[in-house]
Design a binder for these strands. Structure first.
Lengths: 210, 210
DNA sequence: AAATGTGAAGTTGTTCACAGCT
DNA sequence: AGCTGTGAACAACTTCACATTT
């Protein structure tokens, strides 16, 4: 249905577009107007041919013999990713990790704002000093609808993860950043990105010995 | 040099081995002795043929007509990944995210112990209540050598990231879990796994609108 | 009968080589 | 001359089909 005439952008390419965007921001700060695929690719840690191929998935932005306009290219990528306007995000599960993420500066710079947090025991969670309001789980459905929230960060314990996910999905969330080390089952129009810190370490552990 | 006769295990397969290991642990807890590739694959969210192929990269563990011995298979995978013995890890950069990770329970269960933390301003960092000792950066080289630490979690600000990385590498660290949104340059015998939370959100942002 | 192990086929993602602009 | 854009070649990964074992 969604797979119309326009070609799909490979998952990995979308990920790299974010890397390019970071580098373009840095160039902009340094008042650099134009950049070649070679230079930008190097900054992002990829091959220049890959960068050019990635861009062709959604258009042509370069000038042959010259390179890319930094301002224009970053606008095009931001538009595509949907980070030009500030997007509201909610966080569910205000434990250690959850409260750290609530205070994490890295999101705002990239166009995301954690507007509220939810926890099964909001009073206990409130002892953590964060600027966002912390509500009970029962307030979640209404909040999501009222504020048209589409993305959620999930930092609840394993036993609660699937049930909370169901509630999120039922109320209109279509993107979940999941920190619970478990496979979440969701309808196919919902995207889940898993971040599993223990697995990342385990992965390192393998590569340092082989 | 290291690439002897034994076949290399694809990066993605190594990652999935960790997923299988999680599922096997859960089966063990429920006193389940034997499992088929079909059942285990389903729990891990992959196809059964992929699971079997992944396992053949490093051996044959199943019994035809029956399946895999849960205990034996999890031991084999743990051995391969190197998580059978508790591994010491250090953390550098005790800010919001860093201190959250210091308190995060998820690591210990999987065979990793954060034994110490380092920060440029250890006194400020010490106001955060974590159980690990927090040292100044100058103590790092000696500590790494003395305790034979090989893995590090990097949660320092961007401007410090490359310099700290150099120090880590010079003193024997060969695996880095990097949370700084920047491409780290390291010798090829050092492995860096990047976790970039803002990019994960940006990625979600793309997929919820396409 | 049930389930693994694996060569071969298929798919996806990456790099090359070079044509085509500016 | 310099650098982009892209079809074609290549490489990596996934799935299939089925022979093999218990």
């Amino acid at each position: 249905m969604k797979k119309g005439t326009r070609q799909e952008i490979p998952r990995k390419a979308v990920y790299r577009l974010s890397l390019y965007l970071r580098c373009l921001h840095r160039l902009k700060i340094n008042s650099i107007r134009t950049v070649s695929s070679e230079a930008l690719a190097k900054a992002a840690g990829v091959k220049s041919t890959q960068l050019r191929k990635d861009l062709t998935y959604f258009g042509q932005f370069g000038t042959r013999g010259l390179g890319y306009d930094v301002e224009q290219l970053s606008t095009m990528i931001s538009d595509l990713l949907g980070t030009n306007s500030l997007q509201p995000v909610i966080l569910v599960g205000v434990g250690n990790l959850g409260s750290a993420l609530l205070s994490y500066r890295g999101f705002e710079q990239e166009g995301f704002e954690i507007v509220a947090a939810f926890d099964a025991y909001p009073d206990r969670a409130k002892t953590r000093t964060v600027k966002q309001p912390i509500h009970g789980m029962d307030k979640m459905p209404e909040f999501i609808k009222e504020h048209s929230v589409r993305m959620a960060i999930l930092t609840v314990p394993i036993p609660a993860a699937q049930e909370v996910t169901n509630t999120l999905v039922e109320n209109g969330i279509s993107g979940i950043l999941n920190f619970a080390p478990i496979v979440l089952h969701v309808p196919e129009d919902v995207t889940v990105n898993n971040v599993n810190l223990a697995i990342e370490l385990e992965n390192l552990s393998y590569f340092i010995q082989h």
